[in-house]
Design a protein around this nucleic acid. Sequence first.
DNA 1: TGAGCCTTTTTTGTATACAAATTACAACAT
DNA 2: ATGTTGTAATTTGTATACAAAAAAGGCTCA
Lengths: 226, 226
Amino acid sequence: MSQVSPIIHKTRTQLVVEVLREKILSGEIKAGEPLRQSALASELNVSRIPVREALLQLEAEGLVKFEAHKGATATELSVEQASELFELRALIEPDLLAKSIPNLTEKQLDAAEEVLSQLESAFRSENAVNTWSELNTLYHASLYYGANRPQAMEVVKSLNTNSDRYIRLQLLLTGGIPRAETEHRELLNLCKAGNVEAATELLRNHILHAKDGVKTLVEEYVNNQN
Amino acid sequence: MSQVSPIIHKTRTQLVVEVLREKILSGEIKAGEPLRQSALASELNVSRIPVREALLQLEAEGLVKFEAHKGATATELSVEQASELFELRALIEPDLLAKSIPNLTEKQLDAAEEVLSQLESAFRSENAVNTWSELNTLYHASLYYGANRPQAMEVVKSLNTNSDRYIRLQLLLTGGIPRAETEHRELLNLCKAGNVEAATELLRNHILHAKDGVKTLVEEYVNNQN
DNA sequence: TGAGCCTTTTTTGTATACAAATTACAACAT
DNA sequence: ATGTTGTAATTTGTATACAAAAAAGGCTCA
């Protein structure tokens, strides 16, 4: 008969992962801050088991450092890490894009267009800082679907999650969104035109621009943390 | 007084991770095989808690698929995954090498040389199949230390772990070690000479050769699995 | 004052116990 | 036979309890 919408039973572990991830990305949990299992457990009304499992998953994502018998902390931010993250993205993402463009369907391009317009409205409305960041990642990903590269996508996803901390910090400090916003629209046009060469080059520079922006701001921030 | 060698207390979770990882890489646990928590727990004389945590970590490494309420299984092998893994490595590793070569110290080069000779003896002695695989990964990594790119190294490490399953399968099926063994020595020479261009190109081809070798063999294997 | 050692406290690691979800299976109806 | 429904068995998810390690505090002795 008709498709029965399946009830998704999220485990407590998954819920804790989501809560903690958001808190770390948003900066509510600061870099270096210890994450006490019992404290989090009672705060979130679960036992320590799902908290531990969540912390392990977040460690795999690179947001948490988990030391045996010592405890977990939110990983530290550094200019070096930020640079490396963006440079790695600048290497991998253009490659993905190049492989994707020839295979992108109309449907996929429309989906990207849709995300892009949401991104642009988030850009105009000032306070939509955290949604902008999310949409930004989603927009990038939506251009790579044609590549059919699940492993690479996973790597990029992880790199993006970590970049997100820096981007949100930047948005927080500058109070706004990077000026390089027009590049997104241009990128989509190049993809539609099937201009692989120009699109990958633009993407590469786009990511490296983002790196430069983040770099200078994080530099001050990290210094002023002492 | 004298340096007291610190007793490393490995947690049970860590031990379980190591045991299971080796079993999956070696093929003792076959692709798709379900990993029952209680069975593993009693087999390894621990409770289910460290087993669960180990399975979660192995999921992050890409060796295990963990589905809520359904259980964990060793991830499936596929030609597509193998190809993608090696192609990603062919993208990232040469970049790492290029950044590394100008900064490689004598000491680091000597260390690489040392690993290489071990690799070569493992190559000659037939049955040292699993140590060869390990040394191979280590040798590659040892050439990248100069790059000072911890994040990229982590990504490469993960890709290598997954490649390892395919390489070991290949070694198992062919009963020997790839013929491209001489390339390793040549690569080290180019690194010593500081010839970035030639070294990265050789490395790229080296990885893509490995890909081709694995690909054809895995193709048959996966087909014959039914 | 401060360095070392012991005790206490806190925190993590893991076993056990129970709850909840999934799967296997038997009885039944078609 | 095939498919369906309800029940039992299996398996996973999580709370609780206890063991072990690390950190904090206090004591002694130079």
